[in-house]
Design a protein around this nucleic acid. Structure first.
Lengths: 253, 253
DNA sequence: TAAGATTTGTTCGTATGTATC
DNA sequence: GGATACATACGAACAAATCTT
């Protein structure tokens, strides 16, 4: 109910922050849903007894967290805005900007989560969903001819996994898998020049995605898990071989 | 380098968010570290050619994301502020406020991640760290006598897992495990009145934590993994029996 | 302790932009 | 196109916090 679970003595909260907290409480108390209308500026000024500037700063705080959206014009105003997965990923990425994440760290999680996700999807996907996956796999049916093409294939390959994550019912698992795909997408790859393109690894990776879709179609959870586990192990090897590093940057919200 | 990876046509960005983005770019370009000083209000007004109110709204946006902190007085101003794990958890929790998370969802992930974490810690903890874990375990060495005590034990038990998460080197794995512990801590438990306290489950849970610490001490990764897996399975059963539901609320940042 | 300097915090009045009718 | 109802942005003044002397 309250917006502050740990009521530890804060250093001091500025007025805009306190107003933002009050609005959060206001929303939770009334159990307002996405799209519900909030009081307009003038009403908030009266309600909280603060100036326009303070109200506006409070709204920017809530907007930055994705909790409200604002529109100008007649019928405009502020509305409860659902936090999108995209925004949540960006905000979380900002945290890891300050952390040292290695390829090994990411793959330690991918190696257990992706197989788990694959197994839980086996037999639960529609024909349309399976075809969506095949379409993505088809977008790199030829070996990359240069570094740029290889990077493109890498990105598409990751969107295959992100798509898989969206198909599941478990929003927590789906979000986590999609977030890792996003981190890997924003990767700077320092490829060693003398490191040749490994065609055998590429064809194994492609093969495993097709096999995976087939296992999902026939509902073979164990096969899906095993295929994905093997795929993750090769993928990690490839990344390590390319001495990939996680790119440090802030994400737009 | 840029703060906007997907340059898709946005509906329109207000001046404060554009200023906030410019400041982010400014920080990334110069590779400013935590604590580095940002230009003061007057300088930003001159630099970006906007009013004081706009600059302040931009700062509130960055503050809400934990990217800057601001202090008043001489020597005050705005500084690059590391996003804390606490804040990241709060922001992420706001996303799941709008999602329907079940106990089963959370435990599908816990059952694979916690054993993985335990295994990776085996043999890598100092005596002091092991003792910290034992201290936490000692805080519920007697069966709960009522619902309130049981809830307290639940919270302390989760802090055991959160502590474990902090001891690891993998920040991604650690954050994810700690985040799940936090969600479970903010749980509303609707215990069925006719459901008696299950003392056997309690003693098994306590036993497994002590066994786990021992396995970690002697460096037996396989035992640590197995113990944790069993512990997770009992914990899920207990939660399901209590018809626990994930509490919906906004988190303070 | 007290005064002064520095920087953010807050208010108010006014004007402009934007979308709907 | 004009009227209306909103948010958006500016500028000047004053308040509060905090550091130094």
């Amino acid at each position: 109910m309250a917006s502050d679970p740990n009521i530890a003595a804060q250093p001091r909260r500025s007025r805009p922050v306190r107003v933002a907290d009050q609005i959060k409480d206001w929303v939770v108390e009334r159990d307002l849903k996405t799209g519900a209308r909030l009081p307009n500026e003038a009403e908030m000024i009266a309600e909280f007894g603060v100036s326009k500037g303070t109200v506006r700063e409070a709204m920017r705080i809530l907007e930055a967290q994705g909790l409200v959206v604002t529109r100008t014009g007649p019928g405009g105003g502020s509305f409860v805005g659902e936090v999108t997965a995209e925004r949540a990923k960006s905000l979380l990425a900002n945290y890891f900007y300050f952390q040292e994440l290695s390829i090994a760290d990411i793959y330690q999680m991918r190696k257990v989560l992706e197989p788990e996700l694959a197994a839980s999807l086996a037999g639960n996907l529609s024909e349309a969903q399976l075809n969506t996956l095949l379409d993505l796999a088809a977008r790199y049916d030829a070996p990359a001819r240069n570094a740029e093409e290889e990077r493109d294939q890498h990105v598409v390959s990751l969107s295959f996994h992100a798509q898989l994550a969206e198909f599941g019912d478990n929003r927590l698992l789906g979000f986590t898998v999609a977030f890792m795909a996003r981190i890997l997408t924003d990767l700077t790859v320092y490829r060693r020049l003398y490191e040749p393109h490994n065609e055998e690894l590429w064809s194994r990776g492609r093969r495993s995605q097709l096999d995976l879709v087939e296992a999902l179609r026939v509902g073979d959870a164990k096969a899906a898990r095993d295929i994905m586990r093997g795929h993750m192990e090769s993928a990690e090897k490839m990344m390590q071989g390319q001495e990939a590093q996680v790119l440090r940057r802030f994400m737009a919200v």
